[in-house]
Design a protein around this nucleic acid. Structure first.
Lengths: 241, 241
DNA sequence: TATGTTTGCTTAATGCCTCTAAATAATCTA
DNA sequence: TAGATTATTTAGAGGCATTAAGCAAACATA
């Protein structure tokens, strides 16, 4: 064997898969989601139609696989931002990861739009789907950082008694689902931050705010500042207060 | 003429249009967005295929018209909530309108999802599209109430000097686009409220928060309380403080 | 009331799509 | 080298968007 793992066949197959993913991406970016058809993709990679079914069992599966790849790419970009700042305090890492998330979305709007608003079929929400797993990794990055922050320098949280009963129940379930790494009141703060950040980004990329803004960078930065405040951090862009 | 306006033919045409919209809605709700095809809709109303082209020039146009109808329905529900409380203070009307917005979205998730993530084609974003006009009416309801609040009982706003230059420019343009009914610093507060509220609702309906919540009602209510605080209002659920 | 236009609808046909089936060529394995 | 596996092809069924051509009922009007 000269390079990589697996047999020659496996390497060729992987190369073809990469080419297929690339073709899907090209079609998506250049001609929109509707242009991503099995036939068009096959044409792009130089095979004819049904050959693609040796790689994916259906159009849905192809779309799901590519979407999961986009999510992985986004997660990797965020992890990279985290790793290159491994020595800095957790507050700066959080900010860097959030900015990396938006930077990827801005650089790849078609892909990000597809992740969010593309295949909303129930199948993609079942826990065993590739899509779902890739999404979990994405969500987990900020969760991990928040847990680290919580353990090293707990942020202000509401009294659980102040939260409505039904919310407390749900937060308890979520807290359990992350192995109790955050107590429910801290999970509440985390989820609030996540919702605002991710929600703002989705609205931006899906053009729901075009009626008012042409560039949401300062809005995102303000959101980030509020988030930093909610997490009880000093302004991480200032070296020291 | 026995009833309504217009000739017999016009009435019949309108009835057929209503039937078509109903068929689209049924297909959307029962079988998802992918089931809304020209042929399926035609079958549902008992005509065969191309007959629909006497009512809409293309699939896109049909979808756009139905989507605009959904937006009108949502806007009407919000306006109704406002009108039935015409005598109450503006703070309560704002809360009622926001709750009406979520109530409609919860009652019609497929339709709301379609409004938001359905036809994201550039054509639907051009100002002359029916879709865009219906969207404007929707956004305007809370804007009108916010303007009324601003004129009767101004809410706290940031100093314009504290806002970054690029944000100030954009807010000035938006303020002008609403005929200066809100100065840019008040527009900033309004847009922040709108973004959070609408963003949260979109995330909920599009299942982006299923990993943590099963029922977002208490989350929405908390968001509403924060919004009320940002607008300097007393808790509108309490008769008097 | 007879006539011509408008309107609503039908069938036929084109070209795209998804996906299945059967057949063929190339490549690995033993 | 023979058999199994894999990659790929063509043929075809069935669906969809859309256009074209044509028919029949309803309408307007002279």
């Amino acid at each position: 064997m000269t390079a990589g793992t697996g047999s020659r066949r496996e390497r060729l197959r992987k190369a073809t898969l990469d080419e297929i993913h690339g073709a899907v991406r090209t079609l998506l970016v250049e001609q929109g989601p509707g242009a991503v058809t099995i036939n068009a993709v096959a044409r792009q990679v130089g095979m004819s139609g049904p050959a693609l079914y040796h790689y994916y069992a259906s159009h849905d599966e192809l779309v799901g696989a590519v979407t999961a790849g986009f999510l992985r790419e986004l997660a990797t970009a965020m992890e990279q931002a985290r790793e290159t700042r491994a020595e800095e305090p957790v507050g700066r890492r959080i900010v860097a990861v959030c900015r990396a998330m938006r930077a990827w979305a801005i650089a790849h709007p078609a892909e990000f739009g597809w992740i969010f608003a593309g295949p909303i079929s129930p199948a993609n929400r079942r826990p065993e789907s590739t899509r779902h797993r890739a999404g979990q990794r994405f969500e987990q990055i900020l969760l991990d950082l928040t847990v680290e922050l919580w353990q090293t320098r707990p942020f202000p949280v509401p009294e659980p008694d102040e939260l409505p009963e039904s919310l407390r129940t749900q937060l308890a379930a979520y807290s359990a689902s992350i192995d109790g790494r955050l107590p429910l009141e801290a999970a509440h703060v985390f989820l609030g931050c996540w919702t605002r950040l991710y929600g703002l980004l989705c609205m931006e990329i899906l053009h729901q705010l075009d009626f008012a803004y042409t560039d949401l960078e300062p809005v995102f930065e303000e959101c980030l500042r509020e988030l930093i405040g909610a997490l009880g951090l000093d302004d991480p862009d200032q070296p020291a207060a």
